[in-house]
Nucleic acid binder design. Structure first.
Lengths: 244, 244
DNA sequence: GCAAAAGTGTTGCTATTACACCCATGC
DNA sequence: GCATGGGTGTAATAGCAACACTTTTGC
């Protein structure tokens, strides 16, 4: 490969997207066809790429995200680095790497990032390979060691969302409390009592009600809220706690 | 270099040691002498080494720890990866790398691990370079980007110790409650009320009193306790919480 | 006998849990 | 008018914070 990248270093992004109901992950199709057109295998992987010379790891992750979703300035966080010498030694991995002109014998270290977006704000725009949202709960296996990377990303997200205002990264700017609650439920895999949740939220100064309600819903329209980062920064104490 | 290592990949270990009073970090002296014997500079760095071919990242960290402290089977955790293209571009770093036969132009990614030991159980045995414990609070600057790595390690330790039984890794097998309390105080940088602390501890099943007291102390001898990992594993709920 | 750290309980306050019914809208 | 999700309060309990004095040992 002569694309200005470092052969043994890559970044993989676990892109989490919330769609008002479930937590999704953006995956690429990994389809290998034989010369005669028959499909040798077809499965899915995370979005990733080799790191470029001169690019920081954060920049590399941001670039990958931009290329895949068209989005910039979105939440990205490094969570773990995967470097087992045999992590790319499975048969499919080797075949795939050969097919794209990478040496399957090279030991590649991959730095894991996760990012948080709202699915509706994303125009999945990766043309080379089909990018698609998958319900997290229905993902069973992935190419390479990407299932392991995904598991670790989810763990990191679960830990971090309890003490940091990450939930808002998964929501549109204006959201309802039910959607906010749903995020904690699907991310942490728990059920939360609606009244207790709202009681807690009402004590939080940076979740502010707007003078606006939902439109065109076939039920009582919900109050819309926004997250004020200004108020958060100004009032944050060390003990942010959203653990249920 | 021909030592079977990967030129652009290293592991740096932040070795935290508790001495019943403060939190310490094990550092190496980085001293560069000119041909005429004069010292060009002398400062300190974390313990680190390049990753070997065929070695996992965890194995690499464990090896570094073993070489430096003589200890195996101790707590080690990967916390962050540092890969800025210019992280080794400071003057001293370049001079040093040249002096040990590494190419200062190579972009090196370093995977950060922290480990937890009790200073009394360590025979600092690194002979090539002088290894020494330093009071965490008195470390101002370090070689390379190691101060940044140290800061991030401390942050990771602070986060993790609140919800995981890490404190015991910093203590000898038999310890007093005052020592346990001190760990939370120095790691988190807070003060804790003795009675409230003991009340909490007494509700924790896996901190078990022994039939033994301190010996030869010139004050009322304290009850000794141990941590039972068995009981911890058997009784752990999702909500371990040692945040004060 | 004094210096040093160990050990011990109570009270007020705050936060958490559990729980059930009416409301506004679109169709 | 019915289906859908929105919105609301109370009481009991558990956990947390603040606080001061006596005990045991070595020297």
């Amino acid at each position: 490969m002569n694309d200005n990248t470092i052969p043994n270093l890559s970044v993989d992004c676990v892109i989490f997207g919330f769609d008002s109901e479930k937590l999704n992950v953006l995956l690429l199709e990994r389809k290998l066809d034989a010369q005669n057109g028959e499909t040798i295998f077809c499965d899915h992987t995370l979005v990733g790429h080799h790191v470029r010379t001169g690019e920081t790891l954060d920049e590399s992750a941001a670039r990958i995200l931009k290329e895949t979703t068209g989005l910039s300035n979105i939440y990205l966080e490094q969570f773990y680095t995967f470097g087992n010498p045999d992590r790319l030694k499975k048969t499919r991995a080797k075949l795939w790497l050969e097919s794209i002109g990478r040496n399957p014998e090279t030991r590649v270290i991959s730095i894991g990032y996760f990012s948080l977006v709202n699915v509706n704000s994303v125009h999945v725009s990766y043309t080379e390979r089909h990018a698609k949202w998958f319900d997290l709960k229905e993902i069973d296996d992935l190419g390479f060691d990407h299932k392991e990377i995904l598991n670790k990303a989810l763990e990191a997200l679960q830990t971090k969302i309890k003490t940091n205002p990450l939930a808002f990264e998964l929501l549109p700017q204006k959201f309802t409390l039910s959607h906010l609650q749903k995020i904690y439920e699907v991310v942490l895999g728990i059920e939360i009592d609606k009244r207790n949740f709202r009681k807690k939220v009402s004590q939080v100064p940076y979740i502010v009600p707007l003078k606006e309600k939902q439109q065109k819903v076939s039920h009582k329209p919900a109050q819309l809220y926004m997250f004020s980062r200004d108020i958060f920064e100004a009032t944050k104490k060390k003990d942010f706690n959203f653990s249920f």
